[in-house]
Design a protein around this nucleic acid. Structure first.
Length: 210
DNA sequence: TGCCAGGCCCTCTTTAGGGCCTT
């Protein structure tokens, strides 16, 4: 079975908290959270704070609730990312606004000379196509829109990855029910997230009768 | 010195600009 044929409900969902928006500007990861989904069920999780080697800003402390005290004794980014690299394996990967998390994953793994083979899916790109009527496409808004139960602990890596996983399963269910698609392979997700909004109906209708 | 992300997506578009998302 090729990677594209793997079902989209077997995937590693990840989320980074970071010192800022851009690894190219020197920003580092300060926390990684992830859940592994197999056949639509969460079967494992991973959470690790990491010490970026310098103090974090007050903005980031306020935004995430992660303090410099919490990071002082945390393992280094290199140590934490080495553990995470083992957790993710060669699975396909998912994040909300994946372009952001992919940049940090690539940068942090490059620091420890590790590679990965999985391909990224993005719940933001898919939700813009499937939940077109949502008020906006922030993670918290989409969780409410999809009637997913939430305790509101956003902006921590494990919680956000858990909520992204629930949103993802909701999106896959919506595709299956709305378009009578029996299963959603990763290949379909890859096509869907590059398809213009106005062509989404056509793509999925074709897939349902294929 | 001053400035500083970047990819997607829409539109009054494509020889461009600005909002949305992520921290």
């Amino acid at each position: 079975m090729s990677r594209a044929d793997v079902s989209a409900d077997s995937i590693v969902v990840l989320d980074f908290e970071t010192t800022g928006l851009s690894p190219d500007q020197g920003d580092r990861a300060i926390e990684i959270g992830a859940v592994r989904i197999e056949a639509g069920e969460v079967v494992d999780s991973f959470q690790q704070l990491m010490n970026p080697g310098r103090p974090i800003s007050q903005f980031i402390a306020d935004y995430t609730g992660i303090t410099n005290d919490m990071l002082r004794d945390a393992p280094s980014c290199e140590e934490a990312m080495s553990d995470f690299h083992r957790f993710m394996g060669d699975s396909n990967l998912l994040a909300h606004n994946a372009s952001f998390d992919k940049r940090f994953l690539d940068a942090e793994l490059q620091n420890i000379a590790k590679r990965y083979r999985g391909e990224f899916a993005c719940s933001l790109l898919v939700s813009r196509r499937i939940y077109q009527a949502a008020p906006n496409h922030k993670l918290a808004t989409l969780v409410d829109y999809a009637n997913i139960e939430s305790s509101g602990g956003y902006h921590r890596a494990l919680y956000d990855s858990q909520m992204t996983a629930k949103l993802w399963l909701s999106l896959l269910d919506e595709i299956k029910h709305r378009y009578a698609v029996a299963s959603v392979p990763f290949e379909l997700v890859a096509k869907l997230q590059k398809t213009p909004k106005k062509s989404v109906d056509g793509l999925l209708r074709k897939w349902s009768t294929a």
